[in-house]
Every structure is written in structure tokens, then in C-alpha cells.
Design a protein around this nucleic acid. Structure first.
Ligand SMILES: [Mn+2]
Ligand SMILES: [Mn+2]
Ligand SMILES: [Zn+2]
Ligand SMILES: [Zn+2]
Lengths: 136, 136
DNA sequence: GCATTTACCGCAACTCGATTGCAAAGATTA
DNA sequence: TAATCTTTGCAATCGAGTTGCGGTAAATGC
């Protein structure tokens, strides 16, 4: 497991107080976080600073964003070695009961046979249902 | 191919002027439409009426919605016999160049092996890239 | 070290897609 | 017909996301 400093260094993002605290927060939880989630968790940090931090992180592939259909974009730390290429694609699971969104790094994504002449660049694959905790 | 009247009858949605014109518009195009798209195409119909019509259609499985990451929810008419169950799932393709979103009814969705105790209910699978028209 | 330039931060304002309250118009039922 | 329920149009509101700007901090050049 890499430290916040190591991650930022590898991804060539300057280390600042806001960036450290945002990245630490994202690393501390197993589920993807929305801007609002982070804002609530970091009451002394300004929303727009968090927003710009997330943009910077995403541009530099520190994190990736997920559109889970909940109305708020969620963010999760990229796996070590991730370049946000199609090969780094993974499913996301959105629990319709507890509203958590998970990265399913371990579920393989099969090859998608697109129609003739369509070119794959990226994907946003969100599977919805009940998580193990809510499915009882 | 079913007519608008037939579709609404089968799905038990009362036939009104606004509903007819919205459904006709959705049927007339091969790509999924946003509320704004429909509003622009139907300048004499009020936005909130279109909005409520789309909600009614979605609840009654006349149409399904797609979150393609463009910031606007898109809507497309369900295929004949669709119940919006997991078995009716299909990929959507979002062209990053021309901003069109297509239902890929013909591309099979493989079985997704979720982690233990996770239950699949729905999915929003958006593949992004260049459509055949833009990929030259 | 000190001046200059660049990057980052906090605050407030704003954008825009989505949603809602409400009253009028239309359809249905008794 | 009268009462009731549904649909529609208009205007207002909500809220996530985004931006302008001035101040502070860090980096760069001398
Ligand atoms: Mn992920
Ligand atoms: Mn579709
Ligand atoms: Zn859950
Ligand atoms: Zn295209």
C-alpha cells in the first residue's frame, strides 16, 4: 500500500494540505465518494478547493470518476499501476439500498464486440442491486 | 413495428396529446434523446409536461433512461417485450465526438459474476468512443 | 535574501438540468 | 349536470457543478 505522498509523487501532482487530506479521505474508505461526501467529512475545507483538487486528481489519474446514476459523480482512488486506459476498466456496483458505490476490481470485464467501425475509448459500467451487507 | 397508440395501450398509459407527440419523437430517431433535445424539437410543448411525460413513460416501461455521463439523462423507447429486467439489459454507446447515444440491442451482455451475496437488479452500461460515422 | 512570477486556496456568485407548487383546462365518473 | 380525478402550462425553486476574483503561499530568478 502506497502512502499519500508516494501516490502524488508518482502521479506528479504537487503535494498540498488540501490534496493530502482529500486523498487520505478517499483512501480511508472502501466506497467511492461524492464531492458532497468529502465536503461533509472535511468541514474546514472549502467546496471549490475540494472540487478543483478532484479535477486535478482525475486529470493526473490519481482517481477516477464514476457516474452511478445517483445524481452525484463519485470518485475513487485508482489502483496501483492504473492508467485509466480501457484495460484498467472495471465494473462499479451501486447498492440501491445503502447508496454505496464500490469498484469491483476483481470482476473481469469481458471483451465487448462493438458494431462495425465503432471504436472503444472508455466506459462507465455500473451494476446496480444489493450489496452483501444489504442482501439479507 | 408498433404504433404509438399500440405501445401506450400495451403499457397501460393513457393516450394524451403530449404523450403522443413525445413518443412519436422518440420513435422517429435512432439515438437516445435528452429532455433538452425533446424540448427543442417540440417548441410548443412545455418542458415540465415533457418531463412528467418522460417520468410516466419510464415508470410504465415505455422508455428507459440512460446516464451517459454527458450531464443530461437520455431516454430511448424500450424494445418490444422489454420489461426493464436484468434480462433486457443492453449496452449503450456514447460517441465522444458527435454526442449521440445509441442502444446496442444486438451486443450480448455477458453474465456478470458479482462478489458473494451481491444481488443484481439493474445496470447502466455505457461504452464510450467513436461511432461508425465519426471513426474515419 | 529579496523581488517577481506562478500556483493554490477560500469565498461568493453563478450556471443549468432537474424538479415542484399551483391553478387552469380537460377527462372521467357518479 | 355536478363532483372528482388527471393532465398541462407557467413560474419558481433546488442543487450539483463550476467559475471569477482577490488574497496567500510556494517556486523561480537574480
Ligand atoms: Mn472504480
Ligand atoms: Mn437502451
Ligand atoms: Zn448496500
Ligand atoms: Zn459519433
Amino acid at each position: 500500500m502506497q502512502t499519500e505522498e508516494e501516490i502524488l509523487k508518482i502521479k506528479k501532482v504537487k503535494n498540498t494540505a488540501v490534496r493530502m487530506v482529500v486523498l487520505r479521505h478517499l483512501l480511508s474508505l472502501e466506497k467511492a465518494q461524492s464531492l458532497k461526501d468529502i465536503e461533509n467529512a472535511l468541514p474546514y475545507t472549502d467546496r471549490s478547493s475540494i472540487f478543483r483538487t478532484l479535477k486535478t486528481f482525475e486529470e493526473n489519474k490519481v482517481i477516477h470518476s464514476i457516474e452511478d446514476g445517483s445524481g452525484m459523480t463519485k470518485y475513487a482512488v485508482c489502483a496501483e499501476g492504473c492508467n485509466c486506459d480501457p484495460k484498467d476498466l472495471h465494473y462499479h456496483f451501486y447498492c440501491t439500498n445503502c447508496d454505496k458505490t464500490f469498484c469491483l476490481f476483481d470482476v473481469p470485464i469481458p471483451n465487448i464486440q462493438l458494431p462495425k467501425n465503432f471504436k472503444l475509448q472508455q466506459a462507465n459500467m455500473v451494476v446496480k442491486g444489493l450489496c452483501d451487507n444489504c442482501n439479507r
